[in-house]
Design a protein around this nucleic acid. Structure first.
Length: 492
RNA sequence: GGCCCCAUGGUCAAGUGGUUAAGACACCGCCCUUUCACGGCGGUAACGGGGGUUCGAGUCCCCCUGGGGUCACCA
């Protein structure tokens, strides 16, 4: 905030393009911009950058609203709620003539000019540059066109674009809060297009006009804009406007060499939700991709993030999205919540496994410490509704010291004991099993393991013999044990 | 290719001239134990390379290498 009036209210903005899905990196950018604004008691605004008419996607704006809302990021000004600097949708701003007006002003100031070059001519230029292996740069053909000619071609209705007149010499510098001072030679810039032939502004123009008009004090965006920022600086200077503080953010990668992107089938926020990741866990995890509080803490509510956030904690290097760690963190969030809350989230995944409230609760208690993503639940409890067809070899377990004959014997004894049990509950079943093992002179596992297999037909289950018997109930438990005895008897 | 940027374990990430180079995930082992998981304890594992500066460099400078970004009537 150097050089800025301390009384100036901090204003940040999240300006997504409505593409139809929420990219993880974009969400993180929104988060940081939100955190920074809140941290400094400022305003966070939402602006829709829909200047590319060809990329318009139906319902995309809703996806943006929904995502922000589900993670709890509230905007103070935006398309839906308005604000003092509206409209907040660029296509509406274009319709209001805002960009055209400023572009004309810039032409007057000598910072821009009309260009009547055809796409064909530009294409030829591009080809030539490619052939000569030099970077393509507009040759400035229309830059010094006589005013009369411009007027005449305009009157003739010739299509045109408006280009930025980049100074031919000199350097442009700016300070970025995370990357430091950046300087480039103006000669490397090229006269970029500000207003397209369809009258819409390009990002290169609109972002500057809107950020200025909306009084944005801190520009936060992905580092892919780092190299075009000098053009923006030149624009601010040409208008005589104050340059906002720039804060560029490192990208989130899929691997060391690939960026995370929907095009490669990488998960979007919506995809992660569908897989059973919790909004808060996702937000918490991505917050840590590129930012750290400077301490060992890593669990933060949105409010806590607001409290801790600072640009000193931002890193410059790309971060690789590690789903393993997200899984772990999501599991932590699940384990830390009250059982009732977990059940509310998990129940939709229970299917036919738990129709009664009490079985539902028992199942939830078994699942909570074992679930990392909600969508994994069905696969963990499929045996509850229906005993799968399993192979007797499952009863043979080295670690449990069980073989077919012993399993059969244990099952027969367990069947008898369980059938006689006065009360059917966790404690009584547990006691009966332990007593039985002692009576038979066997290890607990030599009795319990076969029972668990008979009850579930699976190698691994959430909970053991006692928990499953309690969950399934006496009748179903005995039925399954009988089935197991049959299988074993036939195999021994 | 020009320009801009980045560089500590497999991953995230502390460290801002003097540390046994944190911590977390993952991985491995042990314990707990009726399977699995949870939990507890322990372990493997890093300063990309080369030159400087300095009494002393992960920390500062240069070069190299590697990687990313950008050079669009996309953002």
């Amino acid at each position: 905030m150097k050089g800025r009036d301390k009384m100036t209210e901090v204003r940040t903005r999240y300006a997504p393009s409505p593409t139809g899905y929420m990219h993880i990196g974009n969400l993180r950018t929104a988060l940081y911009a939100y955190l920074f604004a809140r941290k400094h008691g400022g305003k966070f605004l939402l602006r829709i950058e829909d200047t590319d008419q060809e990329r318009y996607v139906e319902g995309a704006v809703e996806v943006i609203y929904d995502t922000l809302r589900t993670v709890g990021i509230q905007w103070d000004e935006g398309p839906d709620i308005g604000g003092p600097y509206g409209p907040y949708v660029q296509s509406e701003r274009k319709a209001a003539g805002i960009y055209q007006q400023y572009a004309e002003e810039l032409i007057e100031r000598g910072g821009a000019y009309r260009c009547f070059c055809s796409k064909e001519r530009l294409e030829a230029l591009r080809k030539e540059a490619e052939a000569r292996k030099v970077p393509f740069k507009y040759d400035g053909h229309c830059r010094h066109m006589p005013r009369d000619e411009v007027r005449a071609r305009l009157a003739a209705g010739e299509p045109y674009v408006i280009r930025q007149a980049i100074p031919e010499a000199g350097k442009t510098s700016f300070h970025d809060e995370v990357y430091g001072d950046v300087t480039v030679d103006n000669a490397t810039l090229g006269d970029g297009i500000l207003i397209k032939a369809d009258g819409f502004p390009t990002y290169n123009f609109a972002n500057v006009i809107d950020d200025h008009l909306m009084q944005v004090t801190h520009v936060m965006r992905g580092s892919e804009f780092l190299s075009s920022t000098p053009r923006f600086i030149l624009l601010y200077q040409a208008f005589g406007w104050p340059v906002p503080v720039h804060i560029h953010l490192p990208p989130i990668m899929k691997s060391a060499t690939e960026k995370l992107s929907k095009r490669h089938g990488d998960a979007s926020f919506q995809d992660l939700l569908a897989q059973g990741y919790l909004p808060q866990a996702i937000l918490n995890y991505i917050a840590l991709l590129g930012w750290g509080p400077g301490t060992d803490e890593e669990f933060f509510s949105l409010e806590e993030m607001v409290e801790r956030f600072s640009i000193e904690g931002l890193s410059k290097s790309p971060a690789i999205f590690d789903e393993k760690k997200l899984r772990w963190m999501n599991g932590e969030y699940i384990r830390r919540m009250p059982l009732e809350d977990f059940e509310a989230l998990a129940a939709p995944y229970y299917g036919a496994a738990a129709s009664q409230p009490d079985t539902r609760r028992k199942l939830s208690a078994l699942l909570q410490p074992r679930v990392e993503r909600l969508a994994d639940i069905p696969g963990q409890i499929d045996f509850v509704a229906q005993l799968p067809d399993y192979d007797v070899s499952l009863y043979v377990n080295k670690k449990m010291k069980t073989d077919l004959a012993l399993a059969l014997d244990s099952l027969q004894h367990a069947r008898a004991v369980l059938a006689e049990l006065a009360d059917w509950n966790l404690a009584s079943i547990q006691q009966a099993m332990v007593d039985l093992a002692a009576r038979l002179g066997r290890k607990n596992g030599q009795v319990m393991y076969p029972v668990r297999v008979a009850l579930s037909g699976k190698e691994f289950t959430p909970g053991g013999a006692v928990e499953l018997a309690d969950l399934l109930g006496r009748e179903e438990s005995l039925r399954r044990i009988d089935l197991g005895i049959e299988k074993l008897a036939a195999a021994v």
